[in-house]
């Protein structure tokens, strides 16, 4: 098996949590491996991030280049192709950056590509057996990946738990001189911050969160009425925002808001990992879904198999009666 690399994403000189998770995943792929961190960037930011990563990797390959100050995946790919030896395994976090980098990198390295890996079962005879999900997490799949010409593997954030302790005193190897001129047909211009909305769902202790199961724009009122009766705010999953039924500021998830309520009522939400990624602080989750097999029931504390279009109004009525009585 080839050498294992972990691509480190970092911001303002601080390495992302995925840095440690990728090291963990590397050990699952090959318990005897000593994975090498790969880091790109520029200036004091990359120096600070490399120094911090050296405490968890024995070796850190650093590519410092002004053009890589912002991680434009097209340029990062061009840089990595210059330094990564043929047959290597490159691990990348499965996030908006990994989705951008991974597939093209695998083609350029002539390596296999496996995305969004949750677990590694075994590595045998030059093949890796890994677990991924399909259909928004409704089913899992074992996949078999031929490692003979290397692989690019994106790793689901949070899937590989990192044990405490185990520090390294890694060496930083400067690979910057091995990169030729970096040019790309795609140029980063700017980042526009998400608009803040009418309601700040990140501050509410109770969220009535609705998903595609709400079915129609007119039914949003059902959730709003319940929220009023409960003293809660209405949040939602992505399809509700895609359909323009609620503003983007109400979306919970990896491409929306991160919320930390005490109580989260997931109503007609299947429980995809991108949605769950936005729920932090271990709230009490009540899931209401008409499909008893919905993945949300695996993470909820309490589940109700029912139709939200009937259950929620009944809850509102009950709360109103209590308030009057």
């Amino acid at each position: 098996m080839g050498r294992i690399f972990a691509y480190i994403t970092h911001k303002n000189g601080v390495a992302d949590d995925s840095a440690l998770e990728l090291a963990m995943a590397a050990r699952k792929i090959d318990p005897s491996a000593s994975p090498t961190a790969l880091i790109t960037g520029w200036g004091s930011a990359i120096d600070a991030a490399s120094a911090s990563v050296a405490s968890s990797y024995a070796e850190v390959w650093k590519i410092s280049n002004e053009k890589l100050a912002y991680p434009n995946a097209e340029l990062v790919r061009k840089a990595l192709v210059q330094v990564v030896p043929a047959g290597s395994i490159v691990l990348v976090p499965h996030d908006h950056f990994g989705i951008d980098l991974g597939p093209g990198l695998s083609v350029r390295l002539n390596a296999a590509f496996v995305s969004d890996v949750l677990a590694v079962d075994a590595t045998e005879g030059g093949f890796l057996r890994a677990v991924r999900q399909e259909f928004g997490g409704q089913v899992s799949a074992h996949v078999r990946c031929d490692l003979s010409s290397g692989a690019v593997i994106t790793i689901r954030p949070g899937a590989f738990k990192v044990p405490a302790g185990a520090t390294q005193n890694g060496t930083i190897v400067d690979k910057s001189a091995e990169i030729g001129a970096l040019e790309s047909g795609r140029r980063y211009i700017e980042t526009i911050a998400a608009e803040s909305g009418d309601v700040d769902i990140t501050r509410h202790p109770i969220l009535v969160s609705i998903g595609r199961g709400i079915q129609d724009k007119d039914n949003i009122a059902i959730a709003e009425e319940l929220a009023v009766a409960l003293g809660a705010a209405v949040s939602c999953s992505r399809p509700v925002v895609d359909a323009k039924w609620l503003p983007k500021s109400r979306q919970v998830g990896s491409s929306g808001q991160t919320v930390k309520p005490k109580v989260y009522l997931a109503c007609g939400i299947s429980g995809s990992f991108q949605h769950l990624a936005g729920i932090k602080g271990n709230p009490f989750i009540v899931a209401i879904n008409k499909n008893p097999k919905a993945p949300i029931f695996q993470v909820a504390d309490v589940g109700i198999v029912d139709d939200i279009l009937e259950f929620l109004p009944e809850m509102t009525d009950k709360l109103k009666q209590v308030a009057v009585g």
Binding site: A112, E134, V302, K318
Partner: peptide, 24 residues
Amino acid sequence: KVTRIDYFVPALGKGAEILQGGRE
């Protein structure tokens, strides 16, 4: 180079306590 071997439904984590009562 990559093939799916099978599909499976993973064992539930701790799993929710499913309320068995009537709606009310």
